[in-house]
């Protein structure tokens, strides 16, 4: 049953990785603006910015 120690250690390590990822995301400013990226992602690349049919 000593495997439990190992399993729990690994699971904690995995969880800590995710915590680290979350902290990094907050730190790099991803939670500062939770609206603009949702709009930005829909923009076409600049070449396609042609005049609409008038």
């Amino acid at each position: 049953m000593n495997i439990i120690f190992l399993i729990i250690g690994i699971s904690l390590l995995v969880a800590l990785t995710f915590l680290g990822a979350f902290l990094w995301a907050v730190r790099s400013g991803q939670y500062d603006d939770d609206y603009t990226p949702s709009v930005r992602v829909l923009f076409e690349d600049s070449e396609a910015s042609k005049l609409p049919e008038s």
Partner: peptide, 18 residues
């Protein structure tokens, strides 16, 4: 930007789950 609450929340969530 006040990020402290996000840190606190993330940490609490992690610890709570485990």
């Amino acid at each position: 930007h006040n990020r402290r609450l996000y840190y606190q929340l993330g940490l609490a969530g992690f610890c709570f789950g485990n």
